[in-house]
Nucleic acid binder design. Structure first.
Lengths: 158, 158
DNA sequence: CTCCATTTAATTGCGCACAACTGAATCGTG
DNA sequence: CACGATTCAGTTGTGCGCAATTAAATGGAG
């Protein structure tokens, strides 16, 4: 047995550790936001708008809002106004699906497709800014995906 | 040399990888938000409010808004209204510093101190929900802090 | 065919994050 | 001491994130 004068190996100690697990993650996410803000300023996109465009650039076919939401982990409460802004910027059009009148499909305009060219240099800018090696990035991503999966089931699937 | 028909080991490929580095981080941060939302509902705190209270619980002495902002990486534009809500909830009081009239110091009320007891079980709830081992959590935290540091310098210190 | 449950977007309301700006207090230099 | 630069908190405006609700379309059971 160890000679320990410490009176709290318990919750009170955790209340400090806690300050670092979740918090460093939050800080990193916001730091990422700052760098992307700089990189995307010229394109006139915000970071979430950029992520949305990424999905659209990947899947050339028009996407229902629902599918976009699943890909981005966002609900219509967030996506509807965001897509409206992209539409106002002339990058996408939204139109009711013919087969299912409930669904709204999002399609890139010519301008939206062309913007892809100007966005090509962005990822390498960001990759440089992270200063992580390929292996570190891979480790990080694996941990984060495990974490997200665990947290999701804890929260109730959703 | 390898027989590769692949025409794009370049930026176009990165545009997909990119979708995973920043994105998994964002997703994890929001997943954390969901779990904390559940855990903090009974305390009447949001996640950022909880982080603020954590700082106040750690440093018993009254904190200037500026110091809180540095600890939390938040500016007055975010903190001012947040602290107003905490004050409205009776957890803190804000008062102009006597020595420096520009500064506003934030002090816990009795209710704010007492809330700490009810918050004690939160960290272990969260730790369980993450499903990460101690080592994984440590690795993750180290990577995130390195990442944040790198991103910050890239963004311009700020 | 009718009716009810489900699916799908949109809307509302609240809070956070950040840039840009305002105004007051302080500090430093001449 | 005076005056200009700096520091500090607050305010405004925009956009994201999410819960809760609404409304329309669809699908299935009777």
């Amino acid at each position: 047995m160890t000679t320990q004068p410490l009176p709290l190996p318990d919750n009170a100690e955790l209340l400090r550790l806690d300050h670092q697990v979740c918090f460093s993650l939050n800080a990193a996410a916001r730091a990422f936001g700052g760098v992307y803000r700089d990189a995307l300023k010229d394109l006139g996109l915000t970071y979430p708008q950029y992520l949305t465009m990424l999905v659209l650039w990947e899947e050339c076919a028009p996407q229902p809002v629902k599918a976009l939401g699943e890909r981005l982990r966002l609900d219509s409460g967030t996506l509807s106004p965001l897509l409206k802004r992209l539409e106002a910027a002339g990058l996408v059009v939204r139109e009711r699906s013919a087969e299912d009148e409930r669904s709204v499909v999002v399609r890139l305009t010519r301008a939206g497709e062309e913007l892809r060219e100007r966005a090509l240099p962005v990822p390498s800018l960001i990759a440089t800014a992270t200063g992580l090696s390929r292996e570190e990035a891979h480790t990080l991503r694996a941990l984060l995906e495990k974490l997200t999966g665990n947290l999701d089931t804890a929260h109730g699937g959703r």
